[in-house]
Amino acid sequence: MTTDHRWTTPITADLLRGVVDLETTTRGLLPHRLTVRARRQIPDDQLAMAEAQPSGVRLVFRTRATTIELDTLPTKRVYQGFPPPADGVYDLLIDGRLAAQASVSGGNVRTVTDMFTQTSVLAEGPAGTARFADLPAGEKDVEIWLPHTEITELIALRTDAPVEQSPPSRRRTWLHHGSSISHGSNAGHPSAIWPALAAAAGGVELVNLGFGGSALLDPFTARAMRDIPADLISVKIGINIVNSDAMRLRAFTPAVHGFLDTIREGHPSTPLLVVSAILCPVQEDTPGPLAPDLDGGRLRFTATGDPAERSAGRLTLTIIRDELAKIVQQRAADDPNLHYLDGRDLYGESDYAEFPLPDEVHPDGAGHRRIAENFARLAFGDGGPFATKTR
């Protein structure tokens, strides 16, 4: 750590965007993407870990600083038997454009010993510093996007010039809920996950409730969304329901209705977009559960269910898309601000041919860009459900 910085700025909620709740720890502040009440009802370590990974969370401030240091304590996830991932990336944006990147080595390491139960062991480690130097001189708007796949405790912000709170954003707030793809799986860095790219294209403030493995129509997530201020809301439903084999069609339909009913209790007329899963060939017509396959040393996923059991209510992506379209059509008669988007319009057969899914489930960086481009066009573009209304 350097010692020539004259300003240490307390990290407070006023400097953060995209966060739902802040927990005070012995070291600093831990951003959360679910409310305290919701966190108390989480039934598994998978979601507890995912919601504490700050996908879409960023520090936002104005400064003339040319050197910025952010002390953090990361908690990194490693799967036993798999190569450890690279350190998470911190993106620094200046006036909305990516200007620098950094990582923090060390930190805690949580090793997942069972991918199905998410059983894990934690080894504690030291805090570290994300350092950005040689930044352009002059007054500028700075955003530091936190690593989307590392739990990140915020400890200290140091600069070589004063930091000022940015004025409150006048942009609309987009609240999005989805699975690991919305969380950012396989995206190269945090401002390049598809919801972040789509938010930038749409000129909105993102609150990302994309939770790896955990878009399961949980009532506590719906209640959290009900209570979070938002101008635009989307829910991406399907892939986790299928790949976890969480429910049958009989339970799925009322669960969707209940999820939407709860959101509408707090947002009765907010534009609400229901999005089905992107194309995922292994789960289109084969039920879950999904299983990892390390054949050849490369991680891939395969569906293990029996397609013959579809007639008994086992779910596939094809069945879920059909059901979601029916649900939205039924409800839209009394809810003109409810809309449906087929996920294959975001990433379909032609996209799969151009940008195949490396592990058969999650898109790579190019896939995230394609999804973002299509979402921006279909949702924020002219005639889209999130288009800016003109008077």
Results as ranks from 00 to 15, higher is better:
Ser103Val: 09
Asp342Val: 10
Gly56Glu: 07
Leu378Ala: 00
Gly212Cys: 13
Pro336Phe: 14
Pro356Trp: 07
Arg170His: 03
Ala376Lys: 11
Asp364Ser: 12
Glu205Thr: 15
Asp4Trp: 01
Asp334Lys: 14
Phe82Ala: 13
Asp322Pro: 01
Pro254Asp: 04
Thr316Pro: 05
Asp44Val: 02
Arg300Lys: 13
Asp71Thr: 11
Leu34Arg: 14
Pro307Tyr: 09
Glu164Thr: 05
Asp87Gly: 06
Leu197Lys: 07
Ser191Lys: 15
Asn374Ser: 01
Gly203Phe: 04
Thr3Gln: 14
Asn337Ala: 09
Gly18Phe: 02
Phe301Met: 05
Phe132Ser: 10
Phe211Ala: 03
Asp342Tyr: 12
Glu164Ser: 04
Ala199Gln: 05
Asp293Pro: 07
Leu93Thr: 09
Leu34His: 10
Arg248Val: 00
Ala230Phe: 02
Pro254Cys: 00
Pro336Ser: 10
Gly125Ala: 04
Gly212Val: 07
Ala130Asp: 12
Ile94Ser: 04
Phe116Met: 15
Gly348Arg: 03
Val282His: 08
Glu354Ser: 10
Arg170Phe: 01
Ser105Cys: 13
Pro10Glu: 09
Gly184Val: 12
Ala255Thr: 01
Asp45Val: 06
Pro85Lys: 08
Ala230Tyr: 01
Gln80Asp: 03
Pro31Trp: 08
Thr304Tyr: 07
Glu349Trp: 04
Met1Thr: 05
Ala200Glu: 03
His148Tyr: 10
Arg344Ala: 07
Leu341Asn: 05
His148Gln: 10
Thr270Val: 11
Phe252Trp: 00
Arg171Ala: 15
Val204Asp: 13
Glu124Lys: 03
Ser234Ala: 09
Phe375His: 02
Gly178Thr: 06
Asn108Arg: 02
Val361Gln: 07
His362Asp: 11
Ser276Pro: 13
Met225Asp: 14
Met49Arg: 04
Val112Pro: 02
Ala312Ser: 13
Glu69His: 11
Gly266Tyr: 08
Thr390Leu: 08
Arg62Gln: 03
Gly106Phe: 08
